[in-house]
């Protein structure tokens, strides 16, 4: 392995090479501290009820645990980022499989996990051709393996669920990991995760303040036009502003393209949220799990990322590419 790749994969000393990485890390940690102080102040002033206080504490504690789990791998290096995305993929898939009942088809489940493992290898190897070859191959495998039990009833549903599972949790989310093949992946990955999460927060706050018209009451009764537009405006501004520093000097660094990037993050993010609401209503469950106290399941938290990752990836990839100056086929050999 050449030294450049080694530094990218494991070079934690480069964690704060980009000032944006440092700003984002400090702001997130600062936000956690400020949130804790506000909650404490509201409590001492007697402005929050016991129930609300407990709920707020639970949420902040969850974020206090999640923040290092999200930021840590990105700061440590590309190898850890790729591994973290792989773990997130598997855990999200597990939640989805348990909610739909797909986990009972064990051989199909193995195929999906195999797909996630192969995707992780393709990403770590910086082998784009294989990365894009896996989805069709996994569908071929699912279609074949699902025939073996000789029970045609429900065949389409089984193959369909398998395909959705792999595409959403393996392939779509995998794009986030693939960005780690870029020499300057840290600020980009952080920008995406931060703005996607804040997009939710913006929609919630502006929705509470200006929201009157419900947009999709059957899918998610709390989503309002005010919330959607507020998030669109705030997220786009944030993405364009921070993006200007992240992509300084690259072809993406024009006002129009940066605004385009912001719109993609906000729109895909909000639709990702609604996608999970639709899935939950279709299955008939309230939360996708109980893994994050105060949030529900992992998917309840990372739903938006599923749609944002591929959309943003291909948008930036079109203008500037990812890891174009980095060696490819690291383990497989080749140029």
């Amino acid at each position: 392995m050449d030294p450049v790749t080694k530094e990218r994969l494991f070079g934690f000393r480069h964690a704060f090479d980009s000032p944006v990485t440092l700003w984002i890390t400090l702001s997130v940690l600062g936000a956690l501290v400020i949130a804790s102080i506000i909650i404490w102040l509201l409590r001492t002033l007697g402005r929050t009820s016991d129930k609300l206080h407990d709920e707020l504490v639970k949420r902040v504690l969850s974020w206090a645990v999640m923040t290092p789990l999200l930021l840590g791998p990105v700061l440590l290096g590309a190898a850890w980022t790729i591994a973290a995305v792989a773990i997130l993929s598997v855990l999200c898939y597990r939640e989805f499989a348990r909610a739909t009942g797909f986990f009972r088809y064990r051989s199909l489940s193995i195929v999906v996990v195999l797909g996630i493992a192969s995707t992780t290898f393709a990403i770590a190897d910086h082998w784009y051709a294989f990365f894009v070859a896996i989805p069709p191959l996994i569908i071929v495998l699912l279609a074949m393996v699902a025939i073996l039990p000789d029970q045609p009833h429900g065949y389409t549903q089984r193959v369909g669920l398998g395909a959705i599972s792999f595409l959403l949790f393996g392939h779509c989310l995998g794009h986030l990991g693939y960005i780690a093949n870029d020499a300057d992946f840290r600020p980009i990955v952080m920008l995406i995760i931060l703005t996607v999460e804040l997009n939710d927060v913006f929609a919630y706050i502006t929705g509470k303040t200006f929201g009157h018209h419900k947009i999709v009451p059957h899918t998610s009764p709390n989503k309002t036009l005010g919330g959607a537009l507020g998030a669109l405006l705030l997220t786009t501004t944030l993405v364009a502003t921070v993006g200007h520093f992240v992509f300084a000097g690259s072809p993406v660094d024009t006002p129009i393209k940066l605004i385009g990037l912001g719109l993609i993050v906000s729109v895909a993010g909000q639709f990702g949220d609604l996608m999970l609401s639709s899935i939950k209503r279709d299955i008939g469950v309230k939360d996708m799990g109980a893994s994050i106290p105060g949030h529900g399941g992992l998917l309840d938290r990372f739903d938006s990322l599923l749609l944002v990752a591929p959309a943003v990836f291909h948008y930036i990839n079109y203008f500037r590419g990812f890891g174009v100056d980095q060696p490819t086929r690291i383990f497989g050999g080749g140029a």
Binding site: R98, T100, G101, F103, Q157, V285
Partner: peptide, 14 residues
């Protein structure tokens, strides 16, 4: 419609 059957222990903590 597709029929989903969540895990019978769905929604429980570990």
């Amino acid at each position: 419609e597709w029929r989903f059957e969540p895990a019978h222990d769905f929604g429980l903590s570990a």
